[in-house]
């Protein structure tokens, strides 16, 4: 218990010491995760809308696979991305292993199914509501998808936030493909793993509290953005 109090105090001291290394780590965490969330949303949301609006032969099985992919073990994703990007792998020439880009790639793979699946559910519900009207108005498939994405944007924001939550706390995959290199690929989670390994529990805990605070802050920021929109629109 005293370890935890110690950790909290250390967290405050760390933040107010304005330690440059710490801010570098925080910034990289945010940068990698936000990039991954944006890319995964750009893939996952249209995919979710597409699955909701289109009837095709392997639709059910596609959705089942998508749901199964949500539970993809990050370590395995990391391993596969590692093999792909390693010198002898198919994308070895790109020299991406142990870079933030490799970390983004791994995170995109981990959270795209999650974002697509939540988006699909939200859009499917709205599609049930809109179906007859949009058919009656002679909309094309594209117009339907755009309308649904636009009008379901609040639920889609939740999908993105869920993706953010999963990505910001992820450690297994980015440890493997990023390598936790100081000043290059070290992020909050990998730093925590490292400090814990060294027995620096107070410091590790301090980083942990900063990570939690960061997640809460991003959520609050996004909620306040959507609230201002609601106030003007509702």
């Amino acid at each position: 218990m005293s370890d935890i109090v110690e950790g909290m105090l250390a967290a405050f001291r760390l933040i107010f010491s304005l330690d440059a290394d710490l801010f570098e780590i925080i910034l990289l965490s945010l940068q990698v995760t936000l990039t991954a969330v944006i890319i995964a949303s750009l893939i996952g949301m249209p995919l979710g809308a597409w699955l909701a609006v289109n009837r095709f032969r392997f639709r059910r099985i596609t959705i089942a696979i998508l749901n199964a992919l949500m539970g993809l073990p990050p370590v395995v994703v990391g391993l596969i991305v590692y093999i792909m990007l390693s010198r002898s792998g198919p994308f070895g020439v790109l020299n991406l292993l142990f870079t933030p880009t490799a970390m983004v790639i791994a995170q995109v793979i981990i959270i795209t199914p999650l974002i697509a699946s939540i988006s699909h559910q939200a859009i499917r519900d709205l599609w049930a509501e809109y179906h007859d009207l949009l058919i009656s108005l002679n909309t094309t498939k594209w117009q339907r998808m755009l309308t649904l994405i636009k009008d379901a944007r609040r639920s889609l924001l939740t999908a993105s936030l869920a993706g953010f939550g999963r990505a910001i706390g992820e450690v297994g995959a980015i440890m493997i493909v990023g390598g936790n290199i100081d000043h290059l690929t070290r992020v909050l989670t990998t730093a925590i793993a490292l400090e814990t390994g060294k027995g620096e529990f107070a410091f590790a805990l301090a980083l942990g509290f900063i990570l939690i605070a960061l997640a809460i802050l991003v959520n609050l920021a996004i909620h306040s953005i959507s609230k201002t929109e609601r106030a003007s629109n509702w």
Partner: peptide
């Protein structure tokens, strides 16, 4: 189809 409209028994409102 372009020149006809349909009003449903329970109005379908866009969330707009």
């Amino acid at each position: 189809q372009l020149h006809q409209s349909f009003v449903f028994q329970t109005p379908i409102m866009l969330r707009r």
